[in-house]
Computed example of a mutant assay.
Amino acid sequence: MRYLKNFWKYKGLLREFVARDLKVKYRRSFLGYLWSLLSPLLMMIVLTAVFSSFFKFDIPNYPVYLLSGQIIFTFFSESTSMSMTSILSGGSLIKKVYVPKYIFPVSRVLSSFVTLLFSLVAIFIVILFTGVKITPEALFFPFPLLCILIFSIGMGLIMSVLAVYFRDMLHLYTILLSAWTYLTPIFYPISIVPDYVKTIIYSNPLYYYVEAFRDVVLYNQLPDFHTNFMCILFSLISLGLGLTIFYKNQKNFVLHI
């Protein structure tokens, strides 16, 4: 309860940090926020041209399939990568005045989430052009987005701590994300992979967030109980671990930044 009160007390500062991150991201950009729409569309066109010929018999409406997975994974990748450097880049401010340190990684995740929301327009456009039906089940789309947001906040808190104490993580995490991309069925159907690889994929939290999002925007159905349960479980575990690790180590940040 004390942490919630503290969070509410500094909500204005958190909002300013999010706005600052967005301004820095699109500073001197001619198209500005429009890139949040164009970037996933352009990437989808390229990947669709490359992979659709391979999977066209297994995956109907491949552009929507690809884009829905791509947007979820891109948000997670961007938000956690930005969170890693948040404490290090805010070191000068942390040393001068009291600021709740969790604001730095959380603001990075929230600014990336704003970009994700803009990217949803891209999915809507592709759905219209490909003729995918829009049903009442589509109204359930906020649920997987909320789950991946909570999961990313937890992971962002963990990664920000690791980056302070182990600078090599800044480089290792890039490699980890590359491997994570291929272990998440973004551009391929899970049916084509061997059983031992499926076991690994089923232990991948992002698999469930992607599947839940695809269920509502592509397959016109609500995610089943197992998918919903796994989404919530991984989100709560990530947030719990993130908060615990962050609060146990934040007092020593000034010694390492």
Rank of each mutant, 00 (worst) to 15 (best):
M1H: 11
M1E: 11
N6Y: 11
Y10M: 12
G12D: 12
G12T: 11
G12Q: 14
R15Y: 10
V18T: 04
A19G: 09
L22G: 07
K23Q: 13
V24E: 14
V24D: 15
K25A: 15
Y26F: 15
R27D: 12
S29G: 07
F30L: 15
L34K: 03
L34M: 15
W35D: 01
W35I: 08
L37I: 15
L42H: 02
I45F: 12
V46G: 03
V46R: 05
L47W: 10
L47D: 02
A49P: 00
S53N: 09
S53D: 03
S53Y: 04
P60C: 14
Y62K: 08
Y62D: 05
Y62E: 07
V64C: 06
Y65Q: 07
S68N: 06
G69P: 02
G69E: 05
I72K: 02
S77R: 10
S83W: 00
S83T: 04
S83G: 07
S86C: 10
S86W: 01
G91Y: 10
G91K: 10
S92T: 15
S92W: 08
L93P: 02
I94L: 14
Y98K: 10
V99W: 03
S107M: 09
S107R: 05
V109E: 00
S112P: 03
V114G: 04
T115L: 09
F118D: 06
L120H: 05
F124K: 07
F124C: 11
T130H: 02
T130Y: 01
G131N: 09
V132E: 03
K133Q: 09
T135L: 15
T135N: 15
T135M: 15
E137C: 07
E137I: 11
A138S: 11
L139K: 03
L139S: 04
F140Y: 12
F143A: 05
P144K: 07
L145I: 13
S152P: 05
S152Y: 05
I153L: 09
G154W: 08
I158A: 00
S160V: 02
V161F: 04
A163Q: 11
L172Q: 01
T174A: 12
I175R: 06
W180V: 13
W180Y: 13
Y182H: 10
L183H: 07
P185F: 06
I186T: 01
F187N: 03
S191T: 14
S191K: 13
S191N: 08
I192P: 08
V193S: 07
D195T: 15
Y196A: 08
V197W: 03
V197I: 13
V197G: 02
K198Y: 01
T199M: 14
Y202I: 08
S203T: 12
L206W: 10
Y207P: 01
Y209Q: 00
Y209C: 02
E211Q: 11
F213P: 03
N220M: 05
Q221G: 06
L222N: 01
C231F: 01
L233K: 10
S235M: 11
L236V: 14
L236W: 05
S238Y: 01
G240N: 09
L241Y: 06
L241D: 00
G242P: 06
G242Y: 04
G242L: 07
F246V: 08
Y247K: 12
K251Y: 15
K251A: 14
F253I: 10
F253H: 00
